[in-house]
């Protein structure tokens, strides 16, 4: 997929576990796991806003675009 979700990188930078993030953002653990594994098909602006707020970052820190030819996931 061309869009890479760097949620795990941001979580590691903020030293935050999946459980904590799930509780603070208000997303179920399974949905957060889907997002972390880049299996999600879409993300709502409201979810992105909450993630940015809790992780204190910009959308660009969580999402990254990579060309398919560069050996993406």
């Amino acid at each position: 997929m061309a869009i890479i979700v760097n949620l795990d990188v941001m979580m590691a930078k903020r030293k935050m576990s999946l459980n904590t993030l799930s509780g603070e953002v208000g997303i179920t653990l399974s949905n957060l796991s889907v997002l972390k594994q880049s299996k999600a098909r879409a993300i709502r602006f409201s979810t992105l806003e909450l993630l940015c707020e809790v992780l204190d970052c910009q959308p660009g820190d969580i999402l990254e675009y990579q060309r398919d030819s560069e050996g993406t996931k």
Partner: peptide, 8 residues
């Protein structure tokens, strides 16, 4: 339905 379920 899959799109809906996989929209976070």
């Amino acid at each position: 339905r899959e799109d809906h379920n996989l929209t976070i």
